[in-house]
Amino acid sequence: MKKFVNDPHDFVPQMLEGLVLANAGKLEYVPQYNLICRSDMPSDDKVSIIQGSGSGHEPAHVMAVGRGMLDAAVPGGVFSAPPVEYCLECIKLMNSARGVLYLVNNYQGDRMNWDMARELAEAEGINVGVVVIDDDVAVKDSTHTVGRRGVAGNFFVIKACAAAAEQGKSLEELVALGEKVNAAVRSMGVALSSCTPPAKGEPIFAIGADEIEMGVGIHGEPGRSREKLQPADAIIEQLFQAVHDDLPFNSGDRVALMINGLGGTPVSELYLLYRKAALLCEEHGLTVVNNYVGEYCTSLEMAGASLTLLKLDQELEALLAAPAEVPIRVF
């Protein structure tokens, strides 16, 4: 395993220690519950926005804590949802008179732990709301499966709900808003390589030197098909078509377009991919109002990328434009 790591068991805590050392005064770390939160929150003036999911997807979601984004994040181990107790403590710590909203990606572990934490928190009289995110079109959404996975579209749900929370929206309004964003966002990813969870020490799946996994999940779950390596433009065409046709998006739509790196792909390649995605949007009559090129939701050091489209309206455009400040920054 070739990684910057000390004892693999310390991987997540030591990353979080680094994060708070780099953001002293802005972020706080509660080691007991592996929890990162804004130093100036909660406030009874706004609904608290929180999230907890497995680690290994950084900057999602611990590095999305900050003004205009999450108030707290409670990451589990690498690829492991946090236990109920941690979720509950996160809700309690961020308890606000206006309520607490947790945004949960649609994985069974995440959902069950948060459901239980919510029941327990409500029993203590805390007002808790939930939005489930499931934007990954690679997985078929049917009643006898666990449904679609939550992937990079998560970013837009956080951004919109957090901006609206800063504006003083109620918990009920935020739940409705989050569901609206989730209903309007679609993603699909592709892997060129596998990735190695530190505690496992070996790649999570095997992939040939000339193979790609089309529709890969952010924990290395298989996608739609194992295919031969193709030119970048052909890969983007596949991702775009799958994402575009799923909602579907229509000529005339105003959209946000994200090319998200999965961790091991350099930003040069992401812009090369963005080029083709932007051209396809133009061809299909979509106006790209906002664009996002970089890493938003990764799978450790996996080489690969995902494409996300979000259908905009005036409300969402204003929320995406609202100011925000997170640890991941250049300056």
């Binding site: 497995g54 589990g76 181990g77 492991s80 949802a81 946090p82 236990p83 109920v84 107790e85 941690y86 069974q108 572990g109 069950m112 732990n113 459901d115 239980m116």
Partner: peptide, 8 residues
């Protein structure tokens, strides 16, 4: 104390 599916 148990994360993932197994805790619940």
């Amino acid at each position: 104390k148990v994360g993932g599916c197994s805790g619940p």
